[in-house]
Amino acid sequence: MSYTLDRASVLVVEDMVPMAMLTKRILHTFGFKDVYVAHDAETGFELFQKHAPDLVIADWIMGDMSGLDLVKLIRRDPLSKNSYVPVILMTGFSHKLRVMQARDIGVSEFLVKPFTAKDMYARILQAIEKPRQFVDNGDFFGPDRRRKRVVQAYDGPMRRYDDTGE
């Protein structure tokens, strides 16, 4: 048994046309059927509102409006169709400060370019199987910036509010 990816839709927002096409081909090869593509963030948000995709994959650096601006709109615009949608941000940046900047805007996953198909699959898998809870503290709305680490060796009682109690 494998994922029925043809039931889910993806929005790709990437201004470099060959990269957008390549990303679309990778997603089709994975099994996604409905892949919408925009080459700027403004059009990306329009397509987002029109199709309400289940996953967004956006580039960071684009024309006037960046991928981070798009994430802000998706997360905070009162008219946003789905503020909780998982967003994977693609970028060539990998410096810690840049990653933190993206995380502070509400990005779900970070995909550093150049990437392999395996890298992209790992991020999609994370979005499907281990979505983070959302935090709203007034200044920030998005996936919890702290990724929960499971300490395998610990076998004592679970006391945190979000422990499952298993």
Binding site: Y3, D54, P131
Partner: peptide
């Protein structure tokens, strides 16, 4: 500070099993 666990529509649609 409010925490929420939104419904995972992506998971609901794709099910289980990964990508071959």
């Amino acid at each position: 500070m409010k925490y929420s666990n939104p419904p995972n529509s992506l998971k609901e649609k794709v099910g289980s099993g990964g990508i071959p």
